[in-house]
């Protein structure tokens, strides 16, 4: 079986009609998940480091559960379990029409928050105890001390790791294929179907994911080097 490689169908029109909307959604999903996931993950990390045992336990169950289930299954479960009415409620007719896309955003945020929370937990613990004392000593409340003293430092210390996790997240967004959301991969697959090249199209798709992820990794590496100099 010779692979008759012919990618000539990938014209500018196809890129514009099929690939760019998919890429746009994949990036959107990545960025929204990163922002919401880091916020939610930070809250979970604070719960996990709280002095109240019941808060610790809730956070631990959340993190351990999500980290023990394959992402693909979480995507499917959320898609099947959240009723259509919910999407109609949050985004009206648009929400109903784009149910897979909305479902993916919610799923990824909740799933990735578990991973981000572990990163933020390490970040918070990397801030010396003396900093917390110093915050309290000038009269800050717990929340002021966290917001103004600990979290900015934790975030800065963990920035390279958070971004690396985000690159992994970008690659994982291709799993929304399973629920039919129109992402970058789906864009390639759709184009492949239209022009009857369903197999070859996976090659340029992989190449694009590689170029994007690899360039971002290089950027993170440079950022890491710069942060190290600042410290």
């Amino acid at each position: 079986m010779a692979l008759n490689l012919d990618l000539s169908f990938l014209t500018a029109d196809v890129v514009k009609a099929n690939l760019l909307p998919g890429l746009y959604y994949s990036l959107q999903l990545t960025v929204v998940t990163m922002v919401c996931g880091v916020v939610l993950g930070t809250l979970v990390a604070l719960m996990r480091l709280s002095s109240r045992p019941w808060l610790q336990r809730i956070a631990a169950v959340y993190v351990d559960t999500l980290r023990s289930i394959p992402l693909l299954m979480v995507i499917l479960w959320f898609y099947l379990l959240i009723p259509a009415g919910f999407y109609a409620f949050i985004a009206g007719g648009y929400g109903l029409a784009h149910r897979p896309e909305f479902s993916a955003v919610i799923t990824f945020t909740i799933f990735e928050a578990a991973y981000y929370s572990e990163i933020m937990r390490a970040g918070i613990q990397s801030v010396p105890r003396g900093q917390v004392y110093a915050g309290y000593a000038v009269g800050m409340t717990y929340s002021q001390c966290m917001r103004l003293v600990v979290l900015p430092q934790a975030f800065r210390n963990m920035l390279p790791v958070l971004l690396t996790q985000t690159i992994v997240l970008f690659q994982d967004t291709s799993l929304v294929y399973a629920i039919g959301a129109y992402d970058f991969l789906k864009g390639f697959l759709t184009a492949g179907q239209i022009y009857n090249r369903p197999d070859e199209v996976l090659l340029p798709a992989a190449a694009c994911y590689f170029v994007i992820s690899f360039s971002l990794s290089m950027l993170v590496r440079r950022l890491q080097a710069r942060i190290q100099i600042i410290r």
Binding site: A134, G139, P152, R156
Partner: peptide, 20 residues
């Protein structure tokens, strides 16, 4: 307590200035 602490100055062995 935060209010009380705001009236009591404290200086630490390791300075604990906010590095950021």
């Amino acid at each position: 307590l935060p209010k009380l602490r705001s009236r009591v100055g404290m200086v630490f062995q390791h300075f604990e200035l906010f590095p950021h």
